[in-house]
């Protein structure tokens, strides 16, 4: 799939909660408020994975959500970026010893950008988006994905 410069000026984000405590989700909503206004850079929250360029995943993946996460990832049209928000998605966080864990997100789907924190501040999430844009630009430049 060919990448164009339009992609990183128009990132549409689909938000997926894979069993998070809702802390990261509140921080994501805070990121979308007028104070930070990500629409300045064309970032928009969309309701359907078919419209999305970025999959924003929060939470450690529970057994029930693992299959759903795989399917939502498969439903997105390429080129696509996966962004993990919160410590849970990277290591399981406070839920890491739970019996009901299908593992951190990168054991289910490939992840491009991690935003650590419990929960990460909006500034950190914006930093993550900038990292995602930088990664897309690197891929455009010809580097391997």
């Amino acid at each position: 799939m060919k990448l164009t410069t339009s992609l990183n000026r128009s990132l549409w984000v689909f938000h997926f909660n894979s069993g998070s405590c809702n802390g990261c989700d509140i921080e994501i909503v805070a990121t979308l408020t007028p104070r930070y206004d990500p629409e300045r850079f064309g970032v928009k929250l969309v309701g359907s994975p078919r419209h999305a360029d970025v999959l924003l995943v929060t939470g450690p993946v529970t057994n029930q959500m693992a299959d759903r996460l795989r399917r939502v990832y498969a439903q997105m049209p390429g080129p696509k970026v996966v962004m993990v928000v919160g410590t849970c998605g990277q290591s399981g966080g406070v839920f890491s010893t739970s019996y009901n864990l299908a593992g951190p997100i990168d054991q289910i789907i490939p992840v491009d950008v991690y935003v650590p924190g419990c929960a990460p501040r909006p500034e950190a999430i914006i930093q993550g988006v900038v990292t995602a844009i930088a990664k897309l630009e690197r891929i455009e430049g010809g580097a391997k994905q």
């Binding site: 799939m1 060919k2 990448l3 164009t4 339009s6 992609l7 000026r9 128009s10 064309g42 078919r50 360029d53 439903q75 049209p77 390429g78 080129p79």
Partner: peptide, 16 residues
């Protein structure tokens, strides 16, 4: 000109 960028991006994306 954001709508132009959006449309250009959509035209370049995979069509499922």
């Amino acid at each position: 000109l954001q709508p132009f960028t959006d449309v250009r991006k959509l035209l370049a994306k995979q069509n499922i």
